[in-house]
Design a protein around this nucleic acid. Structure first.
Lengths: 187, 187
DNA sequence: GGGCAATAGTTTATGTGTCAACTATTGTTT
DNA sequence: AAACAATAGTTGACACATAAACTATTGCCC
């Protein structure tokens, strides 16, 4: 993407737009090359993640689930028996607090999860996956695994490992940089 | 959601929640390991992209823009003078058609873009970025570049290139499997 | 043991994404 | 020229994300 600082900048016409460009450049049809590899990487990351999200959504959508709902069910399946308090689910997702409530509302409407006040700490609401939920997940395991494989079939095992490592690095660094002092302190 | 640990949690002694695992495993706190590296890669991809999106959103949000709105402005800045028809913008984003209309509606309300019927083909609506829009973008260039660098500062140039290449591969394969009428195909 | 802050969760409001159905214009066919 | 399909875009309905304000419960601590 073009990055030029002055206010009335940029956008000169007739810029050559066909060069042996990277896939990202082609995808967004920008008329200039990237300012940096980093920028290209970020855009590639977002494009790829969107593509993956779409593909995975398409797998669960026929069963009437969104990807987020599927995720909650997976979390609950993995957490079994005792159930999980609502916010614990939110923490394990990339979800904000208010979103998880309604997400669980819809799952409960579909009888895929059940909720109950915790007797020990009555502030908490414990969530469980129902038998129907488990069955639904079971039915989705196959196609989901298949989609996973298909999506990454372009990469060799070694490349996959490298990708995982690179992504881990990015997250590790960024999360370390995040403000550790939470601003949610009314004082 | 940020994985920032609660400061001195210690509410329960018996609650050891750390294990020496990959960053992804730690993040989602799944009790079992991944079935495959591919799955780990996908989840890592989604987590990382979400993180990046959040960080970049935080940069444009103080100016009252969403990341998508910012993107549209960038596209329009890059597309100069003649303006772009609505759907052309949508194609350059990962946006669906209806979304772009309302997105442009909001940008127009803020006087950041203008729209007009094309006289040649009256079905089309040509979109332009306004002077105010250009100024806003200019003001965001600096912090945006800074954020880009910060986000990927963990990776060396060589690693960045590798990441770009790996992501390109994933998209290339998947999109090839997807629909043969690729919308973003210049020459 | 009464006051008060932190915690767990929900509600509300707003912005947005997406699907389906719709309008308007153009191109094509006959 | 009338009919019809394709194109460009909008509108409506609904799910979702996020921030802010709210309720209920618990823990603290004096």
């Amino acid at each position: 993407m073009n990055r030029t600082l002055p206010p009335s900048d940029s956008s000169e016409p007739g810029r050559a737009r066909k060069r042996a460009a990277s896939s990202v450049q082609e995808a967004i049809q920008q008329s200039r090359p990237f300012r940096s590899t980093g920028q290209e990487a970020l855009i590639g990351l977002l494009l790829t993640a969107d593509l993956v999200r779409r593909q995975l959504s398409a797998v669960v959508e026929p069963r009437g689930l969104t990807l987020q709902q599927y995720n909650v069910l997976r979390i609950l399946r993995g957490a079994n028996a005792h159930g999980l308090p609502t916010l614990e689910i939110a923490h394990r997702m990339i979800e904000q607090t208010p979103g998880i409530t309604r997400l669980l509302d819809r799952l409960e409407e579909k009888k895929l999860v059940s909720r109950e006040r915790c007797r020990v700490d009555r502030r908490q609401v414990l969530c469980h996956i129902s038998t129907a939920g488990l069955e639904l997940l079971a039915a989705l395991d196959e196609p989901m695994n298949h989609a996973d494989e298909r999506l990454l079939s372009a990469l060799s095992p070694a490349e996959l490992t490298r990708l995982v490592r690179l992504l881990d690095h990015v997250r590790a660094r960024t999360q370390a940089n995040l403000d550790p002092s939470s601003p949610t302190r009314p004082t």
